[in-house]
Design a protein around this nucleic acid. Structure first.
Length: 585
RNA sequence: GCGCCCUUAGCUCAGUGGAUAGAGCAUCGGACUUCUAAUCCGACGGUCGCAGGUUCGAAUCCUGCAGGGCGCACCA
């Protein structure tokens, strides 16, 4: 991925890489210009370059000697304050204050705050949320939805063509049962209940009848047939069911501030007309073969018990299609018709084997080629405080809206002392509650199982949403008190105090982190950066008064500039995470 | 049996082959006449599951083992 920086590169690491590579070429010859200088943050300087250690063997020279040769060859210019060899062959690099200050001003002048643009833009499909209308909607959907939405926001911000795909579970055998249940309880009643978010109960009641009532079971079976045959009345009923369900999903998405809309829905039903052709293609090419009455792909390398090849069943022995078929049809469609360069499947970690096999089968079929990346972004399970699957005390799965309501309620309690009017208070509570839940989901690596804990996520200290929001609220408060519009602030920036220098240097790394988080599909990296930034700001806030009378005008202007840039980086970063930010707290 | 994800401070989690492994919480001790103390500063706290291997250098890569979670022929 190549990035363009319309306002110039502000990231110190990129500048360092360039300079050290030049030095390598000067010192050892042009063939060394491409070596990775191994720039890392350092506890002994601003950065360290570790390249001397790795090159020593190739150059047949002592590492310290190599390091010294690089240090001698490096173009210090006005960028570095010092470049020193240290330890077994490290290069400790300290940036000059003036350069950091100048770069901070450039970043402030840059409407993109140092975030580059991907050139050329890539077409990236993000498959996320995907609630299943025929199953309980549980808290597990929270993470896939929130992580996916954040990935889309980051990819778009970097200039990519990001395509949201909500792969709704809206088709299959359970829908016979769900439609019959709809008829039993009455259309209007069913719609009302589904819109109110009682889909789980609805499903469970249908399930109970299906298991206990032979007549209902038979009706359901017939209904699956008429649904597959696209009988108009059955399709009408199916739409009633799905539309009501989607209206409920949209309410949840609106509450969460998720960017998914109806036009992003690409559910299983959409692929239904493609399934027969998908199977025919696979069979014709010899990728799929019949086995025990089912049409299967046996991707190489997948073994089940007894070392037998593991099948991916794409047409069951009764002729019906499964989700493997849908996923294969979807890959084909996404690569061939949408022309995706990258497809991200933000789906639970329990589907790892399934996606490995689907990807392997798609490669066998030639649908997935080397120029397309298909990645399963594994989402770890949400656990209760007992370390087991997240449930209510009664052992039921937790309804998403109940969880969100409780978050807002608890946030409301924590600001009860504040002197705000009712409307402001409830808006802050909503923002803080939602931000806390979303940030908690995003701040741990997506594949790790994570223990859900209201007290921890709503804390105003630590790597939490409220802490981040509070930092922005304090910055806004300064501008409010000072009667200054942050958008009008300009440099120059002066770095007198260490806290000012630390903050400025920290702020220069924003673009790199956004790009890294998007490339690796790891929003938690952005969270970690924003937490460091918020921490650097609060340290600055404690140490460096801005508006106080004894602060001279030049220092005040400089500090206002640092505040403005901090605000923008935090605000933009939180927006990329989808975490809402209140004006005041 | 096979596959995937894990195992890091009392707890919850970061950690890009680099120096003395980091945060937050908890505990203890400090800082409000101050732009929001919902904060900040400091201290305490580690056989990075175990054993080998590769490497100048391993929490990180490889192999094996132990422990945990989740999947694995007709639900999606």
């Amino acid at each position: 991925m190549i990035s363009r920086y319309p306002w110039g590169m502000t990231d110190p690491q990129l500048v360092l890489i360039e300079r050290v590579q030049q030095a390598l070429a000067t010192a050892f010859g042009p063939e060394y210009a491409g070596s990775d200088p191994l720039i890392r943050p350092s506890q002994f300087a601003d950065y360290q370059a570790n390249v001397a250690l790795s090159l020593a063997k190739r150059l047949r020279r002592a590492p310290r000697e190599v390091a010294q040769a690089i240090a001698d060859a490096i173009d210090v210019g006005d960028v570095f304050d010092s470049v020193e060899t240290s330890g077994p062959g490290f290069l400790n690099i300290t940036l000059s204050d003036d350069w950091i200050a100048a770069q901070a001003v450039r970043t402030l002048d840059d409407p993109r705050s140092g975030v580059g643009l991907t050139t050329p833009p890539r077409t990236v499909i993000v498959d996320y949320s995907a609630p299943n209308a025929a199953k309980e909607m549980h808290v597990g959907h929270l993470r896939t939805t929130i992580v996916g939405d954040s990935l889309v926001r980051m990819l778009e911000h970097l200039g990519n063509r990001a395509i949201r795909q909500n792969h709704l579970g809206d088709w299959g055998t359970p829908f016979g049962m769900l439609i019959e249940h709809l008829l039993d309880i009455g259309e209007a009643n069913a719609i009302a209940r589904l819109e109110a978010g009682e889909g789980s109960e609805y499903y469970q009641q249908a399930r109970v009848k299906f298991d206990s009532d032979a007549d209902f079971k038979e009706r359901s079976r017939r209904r699956v047939g008429t649904l597959q045959a696209e009988d108009p009345e059955t399709i009408r009923l199916w739409h009633l069911f799905m539309d009501a369900t989607i209206r409920y999903y949209n309410k949840v998405y609106a509450t969460l501030g998720v960017t998914l809309t109806d036009s992003d829905i690409a559910g299983e039903s959409m692929y239904n007309p493609m399934l027969a052709e998908t199977c025919a293609d696979l069979e014709a090419s010899g990728v799929a073969v019949m086995s025990e009455g089912a049409l299967c792909v046996f991707p190489p390398g997948f073994k089940g018990s007894d070392d037998k090849p593991l099948p991916l069943i794409i047409r069951k022995s009764d002729g019906a299609y499964g989700y493997a078929t849908t996923d294969l049809a979807a890959i084909r469609y996404r690569v061939r018709d949408i022309k995706a360069d990258r497809i991200l499947y933000v789906v639970g970690a329990d589907q790892a084997l399934h996606f490995q096999m689907v990807f392997a089968a798609a490669r066998q079929a030639g649908w997935l080629t080397d120029d397309v990346d298909a990645e399963h972004i594994q989402i770890g399970m949400m656990l209760g405080s007992d370390g087991r699957r997240f449930r209510t005390r009664a052992g039921q799965s937790v309804k998403l809206t109940d969880l969100l309501d409780e978050a807002v309620e608890r946030a409301s309690a924590s600001i009860a002392e504040r002197d705000y009017d009712e409307a402001t208070r409830s808006e802050i509570a909503r923002t803080v509650g939602m931000g806390a839940v979303k940030y908690a989901d995003l701040s741990v690596s997506h594949d790790s199982e994570y223990i859900f804990d209201f007290d921890r996520m709503l804390a105003f200290t630590g790597n939490t949403g409220p802490y981040m929001q509070y930092a922005t609220a304090r910055i806004r408060s300064i501008f409010r008190k000072g009667g200054v519009d942050p958008a009008t602030v300009t440099g120059p920036i002066l770095l007198g105090e260490p806290a000012e220098r630390d903050l400025a240097l920290q702020l220069l790394g924003f673009g790199r982190v956004v790009e890294h988080a998007a490339t690796t599909a790891e929003p938690h990296r952005l969270c970690a950066y924003l937490f460091e930034t918020a921490s650097a700001f609060t340290t600055f806030y404690e140490k460096c008064p801005v508006l106080r009378d004894d602060v001279d005008p030049a220092t005040r202007a400089s500090r206002l500039a640092l505040c403005a840039l901090s605000l923008r980086v935090l605000q933009t970063g939180l927006n990329l995470l989808g975490v809402p930010v209140p004006d005041r707290m």
